[in-house]
Each structure stands twice: as structure tokens, then as C-alpha cells.
Amino acid sequence: MGLESLIGGEGFLTTTVNGLVNWGRKNALWPMPFGTACCAIEMMATFSGRYDISRFGAEVVRFSPRQSDLLIVSGRISIKMMPVLQKIYRQMPEPKWVISMGACASCGGVFDTYTLVQGVDQFIPVDVYVPGCPPRPESLLDAVFEIQKLVGEDRFDSGKHGS
């Protein structure tokens, strides 16, 4: 029961360009893992065997920001790291989405200290937050679904993500 059953006998498919592009985008997210601390380990667990993010088309991990469209900020971001994160965010081509994984990236977590940025959303736009310290791999998968929803609702000509 794949796509071919929907297409029918003549081999035609009517859709919008928007729908087609979003369908492609959301099922082939290329994540850029910006892993620093504990959450990075859970993120790696998500990418590996048992939780296997490739079931949802997001397994092509690219460590080069120029080849990826989903930034997963996982772990504490210190004031020394923040410029690096911003540089990487800027280097990613549009359209791009950001997951802030875990309490520390989202709000500083238990570390209300002099060196830790209290939430990366102060400085870069964040689309989906994942609660947890660290979040379980299932939570990260859920966040990827949320991103897929966002991508699906996106109008690629709306200008939100450049053109």
C-alpha cells in the first residue's frame, strides 16, 4: 500500500508545488547536531540502533552546517560557546529549523550561573523546545515530528524562510 496505489492507473498525481516541496522537505530533514553535554548523549542514542531516527527520515547527520536544515541544540551553551552557535546558525542555508533540546538549552536548567546562557532562544530563533534533563530519545523523536508538522504547514513562498 504505497504511493502507487494512490496514483492510480494513469500515473498522474495532482498536488501543489508547495505540497510537493514540503513533502520532500519534511521527510528528509538533515540534522546538524550541536551537541555539547548530556543531551548530546541522548541525541546520539536517538540516532543509533534502538531508537533509530532514520525511521522518520532524519538520520542523515551532517556536521557541516552548510549541508543541514535542522539545528538540534542539545546541551548547555556557555557564554564562550554562544558565538560559535550563532555562527553555525547563520551558516546554515535557508530554510532552517531549530530544536532546543533539554532544559539547559531552553532555559539554563539547574545551572543559573555566571557562565551559562539562560536559554538559546534569547539569541537565535527556536521552533521546538524539548523538555527534560536530559529528554528521553522518544521526546526528541516527538520534537522531530513537531518540526515535520511545522515544515508541512510552511508556505515556501511566504518569505518566512527566505526565498
Partner: peptide, 9 residues
């Protein structure tokens, strides 16, 4: 110090 970064908007 932790608040003073450029903001990407």
C-alpha cells in the same frame, strides 16, 4: 555577561 550577545531575529 551572559545576556550580552547579538540577537538573530
Amino acid at each position: 555577561e551572559r545576556r550580552q550577545f547579538p540577537k538573530v531575529v
